[in-house]
Structures are given as structure tokens and as C-alpha cells.
Design a protein around this nucleic acid. Structure first.
Length: 280
DNA sequence: ATGACTAAATACTTTAGA
């Protein structure tokens, strides 16, 4: 979001256009009371419940859901602070799926204290996912480009975070629990980015990174019907520097996950008229 | 040009982002 407060004029139309059932937000940059005051009525009107974990100025995560929102947990058990605990994770069960919205620490520069904080935080995240439910998604800003195919130019990132072997190993270790990178699976050879620096026309030149991931365990990954980056949301006036990742799932084959029923106000005929963006 | 842009508090400059 890079401030949900600043992004309100983009977020609300995006919800109305894309009609997501579950939304994971990062970098809300708002305390929980401020979040509720700002977004509460707008979310109520659209049928969303919200699980928030925020703080003033930095960080802040949330899950919006109209597919159920049960067992909300804030933070990652055992995760370190820097030095104080930061609002970087919230999880909830939505439509039978354990959904994690995470904002992995940036790392700043390799071998800095913040970099080691990032690695320790990722290790704690892995442990939480490991002991959690089998049907799980980890969604958010991982602040790691999984491979060199996920950055515009490897030479531009020499000596930088987001691409170092230890960071990539930490991500791979998380994925080794059985989590699949559903966007890369869908677009194995495409140039796909989710973040472009505001400066120097980077978005215009498509010089970015793919650091915002949707990781899904097997029971969820097998239901993926579409997965893409909504580049439209990075265009125009006042965007975030990140674009949303959208994943469309089939209903669970065993039927234990009920269909999502929007509130009456959302049953208006909008779906048929929404044109999907060019992918990616 | 150890920068460029954006946001928020420490507020008219600094810190952080990635």
C-alpha cells in the first residue's frame, strides 16, 4: 500500500473493480484504530471483515475477507523485533484456507543488522507455517526476488539485498514446506514484476522486481485457475510502488469450503462487464 | 549526482523504503 491512507482513492475503486474475496495488505502504515476509522465503513459497505495488525508510520498488515475470517493471529510466534516487535504479519482462516499476510523486513544492506533480522524473521515464519494447517497461503511482500529472472538486470543488484543467496535460501526453505509460487508456475518464462521504484521512470521502462508473492500449499495450488500481476493498478495518479498480485481459485473439490456469498449490495451485475487486464 | 520518488513524524529535515 505504501500508506493505506494515501491509497484510499486507489484501493476502494480497485476493490469494486476486481471484486476480490480475500485481500492481503502490506505497508498500511496505520495504527489499528486509525485503520478502523478510515476504512471501517467502506469495508462494511462492501461486505468485508478486516483483521488488522498495524502501527503508526511504518509497516502494518491486514486481511480483508468476505469469505470468512476466523482464528485471527497477529505477529509471528518467535519472530524477532528490531528491536521492538514490528507489525509484519497477520493470519486468519478464510474459506477453509489459512491465509498469512506478511511484510518481510527489507534487509537494507547485506550483512547489516537489519539483514540478519530479515533472515531470522523468515526462519520464524517458516516454523509457524510448518506447524500450521496443511491448506495454507502465504501472501505478501517477501522482499526477495526468488531468481535472477525476477529482476530486470542482475548487474543492477550486485551487492544489494533481495537477491543474495542466504535470502533466496530462506525463501526456498519456506517453499520446501510444500508452498508453490503460483504466479511463476503460471508464467514460467515471462517478464513479471510486482514492484517498480518511483524514481527515474522505472515503471514506464518496466525496470522492476518480482518480490510480492503468493505461495500456496498443494491443496490450494491445484485450485488455481488464474494468477497474474495487476499492472493496471501501478499506472495513473497516486499509485503504490507495488502492484497487486491476483489469484483466482476454484472452489474446493471436496465441497467443504462453501461458496462465497456476497452481501446483497454486492450482488449487482458488475462481473460480466469487467475486462481482465492483459497478462501479465 | 552514495541521486532520482513518496510518505510520515522526529516536521521545513530525517528516516525508511527496495
Amino acid at each position: 500500500m505504501n500508506s493505506v491512507k494515501q491509497r484510499m482513492p486507489r484501493l476502494l475503486p480497485w476493490l469494486d473493480q476486481r471484486q476480490p474475496d480475500v485481500v492481503c495488505l502490506q505497508e498500511t502504515k496505520l495504527g489499528d484504530d486509525a485503520f478502523a476509522g478510515l476504512l471501517g465503513p467502506e469495508l462494511d459497505a462492501r461486505g468485508y471483515a478486516a483483521a488488522v495488525h498495524g502501527e503508526a508510520r511504518w509497516n502494518g498488515v491486514a486481511i480483508l475477507s468476505r469469505a470468512g475470517l476466523d482464528g485471527v493471529v497477529t505477529g509471528i510466534a518467535g519472530a524477532p523485533g528490531f528491536p521492538h516487535l514490528e507489525a509484519r504479519a497477520v493470519s486468519a482462516t478464510c474459506g477453509g484456507i489459512r491465509v498469512h499476510s506478511v511484510y518481510v523486513p527489507n534487509g537494507r544492506t547485506p550483512d547489516s543488522e537489519h539483514y540478519h533480522y530479515k533472515l531470522a524473521w523468515l526462519a520464524a515464519l517458516r516454523e509457524v507455517v510448518k506447524v500450521g494447517p496443511e491448506t495454507v497461503m502465504v501472501c505478501g511482500d517477501m522482499n526477495i526476488a526468488p531468481t535472477d529472472a525476477d529482476i530486470f538486470d542482475p548487474d543492477a543488484y550486485v551487492g544489494q539485498t533481495h537477491v543474495t543467496p542466504p535470502e533466496r535460501a530462506a525463501l526456498a526453505s519456506l517453499q520446501a514446506l510444500g508452498l508453490q509460487d503460483v504466479v511463476r508456475d503460471r508464467w514460467p518464462d515471462e517478464r513479471v514484476f510486482t514492484y517498480w521504484d518511483y524514481r527515474a521512470g522505472m515503471f514506464h521502462q518496466d525496470l522492476g522486481m518480482r518480490i510480492d508473492l503468493v505461495l500456496a500449499s498443494g491443496p490450494v495450488a491445484s485450485r488455481v485457475r488464474a494468477a497474474w500481476v495487476d499492472r493496471q493498478a501501478r499506472k495513473g495518479t497516486g499509485p503504490s510502488d507495488h502492484a497487486p498480485v491476483i489469484v483466482d481459485l476454484d472452489e474446493a473439490p471436496d465441497g467443504d469450503i462453501g461458496p462465497v456469498v456476497p452481501p446483497p449490495s454486492m450482488r449487482a451485475p458488475r462481473r460480466g462487464s469487467v475486462k481482465l487486464p492483459q497478462s501479465p
